Simulated scan of single mutants.
Amino acid sequence: IPVVWDETRVLQGEVGDYILIARRNGDTWYLAAMTDWSSRNLETGLSFLGEGVYQATIFKDGPNADKNASDYLIRNQHVRRNDNVLLNLAPGGGWVAIVSPAN
């Protein structure tokens, strides 16, 4: 994960409740979300992406994440700028995606 960013966007959030941000380094975007002790379902668009197809590697809460913080799933999918992504956050949970142009 880079430590220097070309761009940062806050996509959604409520102070003290949850946040969803997107940060760009070069042509790769890093999205991250976390929530307080309330489970949340968030939906976000990807309009900040450029044209074309992107590969998204997603790290999300697993089915038992509310009881076991190390329970997570990794999923790969192709996305485009007109897609929406649904995030299901467990209580105290989080979500991360690394999105880069598909080859």
Rank of each mutant, 00 (worst) to 15 (best):
M34I: 10
A32Y: 06
R9Q: 13
Q55V: 03
V53N: 07
D83P: 03
L86S: 15
L73W: 04
V79W: 11
Y54D: 06
Y54I: 02
F48D: 00
T35P: 07
T44A: 07
A69T: 10
N76K: 15
V10F: 10
V53S: 10
L11K: 03
A69H: 09
E14W: 07
E7S: 02
V4L: 14
A56H: 03
W95Q: 01
E43K: 11
V79N: 01
D6C: 00
N103Y: 02
S70W: 14
V99Y: 02
V4S: 13
L87E: 08
K67S: 12
T28F: 02
P91R: 09
D83V: 02
S100Q: 11
P63R: 07
S47N: 10
H78W: 10
V15H: 13
R80C: 11
F48N: 01
S70C: 11
A56E: 04
K60Y: 04
I21F: 06
I74Q: 11
Q12V: 07
K60P: 01
W29G: 06
S100H: 10
Y18S: 04
D61P: 05
L11E: 00
P2T: 07
D66A: 15
T28S: 04
E7Y: 03
N64R: 10
G45F: 02
L11M: 05
V3T: 14
Y30K: 00
T35K: 09
A65D: 12
L49I: 01
G50R: 06
G26C: 08
D36K: 11
T44R: 00
Y54S: 05
G45V: 03
N82P: 01
E43S: 10
G13K: 06
D71T: 07
G13M: 03
T44K: 00
D36H: 12
I21M: 14
P101I: 09
N76D: 15
E51S: 12
L89I: 01
